[in-house]
Design a protein around this nucleic acid. Sequence first.
DNA 1: AATCTCCATTTCGTATACAATCTGTAGGCA
DNA 2: TGCCTACAGATTGTATACGAAATGGAGATT
Lengths: 237, 237
Amino acid sequence: MTIAPADLRGSFSLPPGKALDICHQLEAAILQHRMQPGMKLAEDEVGELFGVSRTVARTALQALAHGGLVTIERNRGAFVSRPTIREAHEVFEARALIEPRIARMAARAMTPDHLKVLQGHVDAEHEVTAQGDMGMALAHSGAFHLSIADIADQAILTQILHTLVSRSSLIIALYWHRRDTGCESHSHHALLKAFSVRDENAAEEIMKSHMVDLHSGLDLRDRSESHRSLADVFAKP
Amino acid sequence: MTIAPADLRGSFSLPPGKALDICHQLEAAILQHRMQPGMKLAEDEVGELFGVSRTVARTALQALAHGGLVTIERNRGAFVSRPTIREAHEVFEARALIEPRIARMAARAMTPDHLKVLQGHVDAEHEVTAQGDMGMALAHSGAFHLSIADIADQAILTQILHTLVSRSSLIIALYWHRRDTGCESHSHHALLKAFSVRDENAAEEIMKSHMVDLHSGLDLRDRSESHRSLADVFAKP
DNA sequence: AATCTCCATTTCGTATACAATCTGTAGGCA
DNA sequence: TGCCTACAGATTGTATACGAAATGGAGATT
């Protein structure tokens, strides 16, 4: 494996260049859970790490902020986002709305070559899971979902889904609770099967229930330890 | 009327500051069709216009680029986006997927105060339409749709819809063909009526057909005059 | 000992300077 | 005349410098 396994390019509205590269590298690191939500991303640090000035680092961080992966606070800097429980629900509700439709369109457009790509993601996910690298497994799982959108050939929905999948990774880092292994692979296999016979209805239905599964695999109870903002804490009910 | 009628804030992931203000002003100008798709937005010009340096202007333009309103080409600069026919279809297909759901959720959450806000947008749209200011009318129409998302109280879908509505404005500038006035107001009134009795099913259905109407009001035939990229023109079939 | 104030440090916000790239035009050459 | 080349202008890409804001700690005060 050479570069990024979660090869999720195409969703940053930046012209090609150093800033875009940094975006991709930071995104991969976040998606693979090599950076925790809440972690500080100082401009100087990022710039030095990638051998560019603060100007370029800043551009990259702002681009990531637009995707929701990073949060920028004025005069305080950039941090890996910490999605709230509320956001977590909304992200998976949005995915539950969008992805079944995407699955249907992908099933319609599916070719043997497309199937091979999807199979590759599932295999890779299995492999790294066997090695215990859950971060990488999650990245491959995300790539699987995004490849489906690619196949559906709807650029705008793909771009939207890209941000949702990225955020999902943060949400899982914070709230994933189900400990049973192979959490998703069954659904992914079932999807592959539906795709292989181009069964649009099955693909849509399987994706829909897959989304419900994912959502219910989170522990989104309102543990008071979660750092709500001061304004939230003192908001009148 | 004081500031922006299309008061569509909240969708730029920038900390408050000058750059964000510039974003809002440029967005309003584009949404009201005071700037045509394809128009150049030079950094110097924008900076001078708003009394800031290129740095800040650049930040604003990049933020707009992430929303799809502006396209940045490396070493060439920023331009008001010119959505392709393909993108136009995709935008309205995405809206057709998302907005009926939003309408349903909004109907569930509707209160008398919310209704007043929506009624205000419709009234404002009528007023400026009567004055012949179609750009402003379009901006109010967009604000109506976004207010519905606000009422549905789904921040993520609202943000997604914001970008879609903005792009719709560009698409309409390029491709709107139906000349009959009152193009949308009937649908908007029907929606208001459904909302006023909190009829979720009706709201969803009306919104769905409203989306079909909008989509079909565009002339998306492949007129060869449209400036396709050279690569597209000479792509082998 | 606890608290307040002030200052030093760090980090970001903004402006400016210089380098790189592209575009258009004028001049030279076949 | 037609075409290629080279230069000049304009615009963006990147780096750096300086100012502003927030943080953290040392010292003074009660």
